[in-house]
């Protein structure tokens, strides 16, 4: 197990290298540069700027220079936010995005699995249909529609919660977490329901029931683990997406997270910022997939990561 983990973690390096290479050259191929603006700069100043950011070096040299920086975890200065380095921007934004993402994912997991199990146990009843109907709505209504409605009702009309902003307090988290959790909750509920129905029809459950175990024990002890398998594999990548920040949620609720840096950075040709966020996102995806695999092994006795597998 330990060897497997180590091997997986070492596998991170070539994957990341690929990611950095592709992202780096894609950014540079895009037309327009970080200093292009309506009022063009005097050529001397532009030359100095290029020299400061090493943009006047040959592309390959820039690439290796950047790799050298990344190796010591220095993502360089931001082009757009001139008072900050990319490391500082990530250090400020990531905790916020992570708080919102982890809370939303936990909420989605708890509520989603409970709803899914409830629907599966009452398959093809009114409860099942209404729960799955609501879940379908949750998936299909985009969050840029839900969010303004929640703001209008709960913040503008009722005045119970702030309409946006971030002070780290509970009140300012409620609406963004709720909005971010909704589609994931719905998706998890549907996954859980389908998975539960399938598991309940499998042989080992029939055996458990035949032994005379009460239904609640059958569900908790025997069905729950295999039921969660598809949910866990969904949650890995979804979690990476959620904790690295959602552009839509951040814009609508004016939250100082990481998501907007992706889009703004790309539009402003803020090379260093985009690269920093891409690398962070890559690391998160790889790590979370790894965690998913570990949980998988724990949940499913059929999977074991040893030398022979």
């Amino acid at each position: 197990m330990l060897r497997h983990s180590l091997r997986r973690l070492l596998g991170l390096i070539p994957t990341l290298l690929m990611l950095i290479t592709v992202a780096f050259f894609m950014m540079r191929v895009a037309p327009g540069g970080p200093f292009d603006s309506e009022k063009s700069l005097p050529p001397e100043i532009e030359a100095n700027l290029n020299a400061k950011y090493h943009l006047d070096d040959p592309l390959l040299k820039q690439y290796f220079h950047y790799l050298g920086q990344v190796a010591v975890l220095d993502f360089g200065p931001s082009f757009q936010y001139k008072d900050w380095t990319v490391n500082e921007l990530i250090a400020q934004g990531f905790p916020v995005s992570m708080t919102v993402g982890v809370l939303a994912m936990s909420l989605a997991f708890i509520v989603g699995t409970l709803l899914g199990i409830a629907a599966a146990l009452r398959q093809n009843t009114r409860i099942d249909y209404s729960l799955m109907g609501v879940a379908m709505l949750g998936i299909s209504i985009p969050n840029f529609v839900i969010a303004p409605i929640l703001i209008l009702v709960l913040a503008v009309y009722a005045g119970w919660l702030p309409a946006g902003g971030w002070d780290g307090g509970f009140a300012s988290m409620v609406l963004p977490v709720l909005t971010l959790a909704l589609p994931a909750t719905a998706y998890i509920a549907r996954l859980t329901r389908g998975s539960m129905i399938e598991v309940l029809h499998s042989n080992f459950i029939r055996t458990a029931r035949a032994k005379g175990l009460p239904e609640s024990v059958v569900i908790r002890r025997h069905a729950l683990r295999p039921v969660l398998l598809p949910v866990i594999s969904f949650m890995g990548p979804a979690m990476a997406g959620m904790i690295s920040g959602s552009v839509v949620i951040e814009r609508i609720f004016s939250i100082p997270g990481l998501g907007s840096y992706f889009v703004q950075g790309a539009l402003n040709r803020d090379y260093t910022l985009v690269m920093g966020v891409v690398i962070l996102y890559g690391v998160l995806i790889i790590l979370l997939n790894f965690v998913v695999d570990l949980i998988y092994a724990w949940l499913n006795p059929k999977i074991r990561y040893d030398e022979t597998s």
Binding site: P148, A155, P162, A163, G165, I252, S254
Partner: peptide, 18 residues
């Protein structure tokens, strides 16, 4: 001073009294 990129978000916060 609240830096708010999105004018719609700014309007919501104005209407909510913030």
């Amino acid at each position: 001073y609240l830096p708010i990129e999105d004018p719609h978000a700014e309007l919501s916060r104005y209407r909510a009294g913030e």
